[in-house]
Simulated assay, not measured.
Amino acid sequence: MTILRTERLALRPLLPDDAEDYATMRFHPEVAKWLPPAPGKQEEGDLVATARATIDRFAASWQERRLAPWGIFLDAKLIGHGGLNYVPEFDAVEVLWALHPEAWGQGYATEVAEAALNYGFGALDLGSIFAITFESNLSSQAVMKRIGLTYRKRVDYKGFTDIVWFDIDRAAYAERTSAAAR
Results as ranks from 00 to 15, higher is better:
136 S>M: 10
143 V>C: 05
177 T>V: 08
25 M>T: 04
51 A>W: 00
99 L>S: 11
27 F>W: 06
143 V>Q: 05
21 D>T: 15
80 G>R: 01
72 I>N: 03
43 E>F: 08
109 A>F: 14
113 A>Q: 02
92 A>F: 11
109 A>M: 11
49 A>E: 06
175 E>Q: 12
92 A>Q: 12
143 V>I: 09
56 D>V: 07
31 V>Q: 00
78 L>D: 00
145 K>G: 12
5 R>D: 11
24 T>S: 07
115 A>C: 10
146 R>D: 09
60 A>V: 11
115 A>L: 04
116 A>N: 00
1 M>E: 09
55 I>G: 00
115 A>S: 10
24 T>W: 14
181 A>W: 06
17 D>G: 13
151 Y>A: 11
31 V>F: 02
117 L>V: 10
166 F>W: 10
128 S>E: 03
176 R>L: 14
70 W>R: 07
159 G>D: 06
158 K>P: 08
40 G>Y: 02
119 Y>D: 11
44 E>Q: 06
89 E>M: 14
116 A>I: 03
66 R>L: 15
161 T>Q: 15
47 L>C: 02
69 P>Q: 06
108 Y>K: 03
87 V>G: 01
88 P>W: 06
65 R>A: 01
68 A>R: 06
173 Y>L: 11
13 P>Q: 09
82 G>F: 01
176 R>P: 08
91 D>V: 15
126 L>D: 09
72 I>T: 06
19 A>D: 07
114 E>K: 12
139 S>N: 03
78 L>F: 01
73 F>S: 02
